[in-house]
């Protein structure tokens, strides 16, 4: 996984509350058995007219000429609500989004973003409103420093943000969770053995066919 240290980018202001995972990536694109390739379908129903990939909707923010290549999404409350499908962060990551800023994010989505190297920054609603105002007319450049937990916007504002230490460590180092967990294999085995002793009914014979 790509490590996240600092990032300089314009923000893409998506001014809608409760953007759900079906809006981020509609379910007709979930039948892939790969992780890559979903970026072109990100926000599909809003981004293209009549479901036609060759007919981008000029009113949708992702299609703004001056925001092409931007890697930071600015969103409203409860972003990412709905499904647990990881296709939503995969689509965001594949499009090139590396960070998102909002007043709040849905729990499962937030977890999935960390697993895919996407930094989520939660800021107060008033701060978000200020950023939207600044980003509306022309691209607003921001500098994100994860180690310092700071966001600097090009209009001279500085914001600090909170992040759980575990998530920060993972993002900064681009770590794989499974490797980290298997370092505790003995503890897991001991816990499991005790559980099997106390509650044998939780363990069963596997049937096939």
């Amino acid at each position: 996984m790509q490590a996240f240290t600092t990032l300089d980018s314009a923000v893409i202001p998506l001014d809608r509350a409760n953007v759900d995972t079906d809006a981020i990536i509609p379910k007709q694109f979930l039948k892939t058995i790969e992780r890559q390739g979903l970026g072109q379908f990100l926000f599909f129903d809003w981004r293209y007219r009549d479901g036609d990939l060759s007919d981008p909707n000029p009113d949708f923010v992702l299609n703004r000429v001056d925001l092409q290549g931007a890697q930071v999404l600015l969103a409203q409350q409860n972003f990412g609500c709905g499904s647990s499908r990881e296709h939503a962060p995969w689509a965001l990551a594949d499009y090139g989004i590396r960070a998102a800023i909002a007043p709040s994010f849905a729990d499962i989505f937030a977890n999935n973003c960390v697993q895919n190297g996407i930094l989520l920054i939660t800021l107060q609603q008033e701060t978000i409103d200020t950023l939207f105002l600044a980003a509306r007319a022309a691209p607003l450049q921001v500098h994100i420093d994860l180690a310092a937990q700071e966001l600097h916007s090009a209009d001279g504002q500085h914001y600090s943000f909170d992040i759980a230490p575990g998530a920060k460590h993972k993002l900064l180092n681009g770590l794989d969770d499974i490797q980290m967990t298997l370092a505790h294999a003995d503890a897991i085995r001991a816990f499991e053995a005790e559980r099997r002793r106390q509650m044998p009914w939780l363990f069963r014979e596997v049937q096939h066919g």
Binding site: S84, E86, N111, N112, Q115, I178, T181, A185, I188
Partner: peptide, 14 residues
């Protein structure tokens, strides 16, 4: 509910 990375994690580590 969990995401696919966590599905893989559960499969590998319980």
């Amino acid at each position: 509910g969990i995401g696919t990375t966590e599905v893989e994690h559960v499969l590998a580590t319980q």
